[in-house]
C-alpha cells in the first residue's frame, strides 16, 4: 500500500469537504501540491517547518505544517484549509469576524495558519485562558501584529461560540 502511494503521481484528498485529485511531483510536500492546485491560502513562509503559515488540519493528525508532509502520504485524507472556516452560506466564522473587528490581521500572510491554530485550539478547549491561546500560537510567527490583538480576538471568538461556558461573574 505504502509502496503504491510513493509511486503515485496523483492523490485523492477531500479538501474542505470537496473531493479533489491532486497531481503531485516526486518528493513534493503537501504545501507545494496544494498551492500548485490553486489553494493559495496555504502560505509558504519558510518551507522548513518553523513559521506555521502553511498550517492545515490534516485528517486524524489534526493541525499540521503542510510543508513537512510529503503529498504522497496524504492519499485519502481529509484536509481543511482556512477556507473551511466559512459556513455553508459563505459567512465568516466568529474567529474571522473577531480578527477583522479587532485589527488582528495586518499583512495577513500568517493569518490562515494562525486561524487554523486557533480553530484547532477551540476544538479542544472551549474556554481557553490567555496563556492557552498564546501556547496554541507558539508555532506561528506573526511579524506584524505582536500577537496581542490576535490573542484577544481568539478569546472573544471563544466566548461567542455555542459551547463556551458562560463567563464567570465579574470577569468582564
Amino acid at each position: 500500500m505504502s509502496q503504491e502511494k510513493k509511486s503515485a503521481d496523483s492523490i485523492h484528498i477531500c479538501i474542505n469537504g470537496e473531493r479533489e485529485r491532486l497531481d503531485i511531483e516526486p518528493g513534493e510536500t503537501l504545501m507545494a501540491s496544494l498551492r500548485r492546485a490553486g489553494h493559495y491560502s496555504v502560505k509558504n513562509g519558510c518551507d522548513e517547518g518553523v513559521c506555521g503559515a502553511c498550517n492545515v488540519i490534516l485528517g486524524e493528525e489534526g493541525l499540521t505544517r503542510s510543508c513537512l508532509v510529503p503529498a504522497a502520504s496524504c492519499d485519502g485524507d481529509d484536509v481543511m484549509t482556512v477556507e473551511g472556516l466559512l459556513d455553508d452560506d459563505g459567512r465568516l466564522h466568529p474567529l474571522q469576524e473577531e480578527f477583522l473587528e479587532r485589527g488582528a490581521a495586518q499583512c495577513g500572510y500568517c493569518i490562515p495558519g494562525v486561524l487554523l491554530s486557533a480553530y484547532d485550539l477551540l476544538q479542544r478547549d472551549t474556554v481557553p485562558t490567555e496563556e492557552a491561546i498564546a501556547d496554541a500560537l507558539s508555532g506561528n510567527i506573526c511579524r506584524c501584529t505582536g500577537y496581542v490583538q490576535q490573542i484577544e480576538a481568539i478569546q472573544a471568538a471563544a466566548e461567542r461560540l455555542p459551547d463556551a461556558e458562560p463567563a464567570a461573574e465579574g470577569e468582564h
Binding site: 502560505k43 477556507e83 480578527f99 485589527g103 499583512c107 490562515p112
Partner: peptide, 23 residues
C-alpha cells in the same frame, strides 16, 4: 473610528492574493 480594513475580508478568508498566488 476603528473601521475594518478595506482589504480585511481577503486577509481573514485566505482570498488575499500575494505575489506568488497566481497560476
Amino acid at each position: 473610528e476603528s473601521v475594518e480594513k478595506v482589504d480585511g475580508w481577503g486577509l481573514v478568508t485566505g482570498n488575499a492574493r500575494y505575489t506568488d498566488d497566481i497560476p
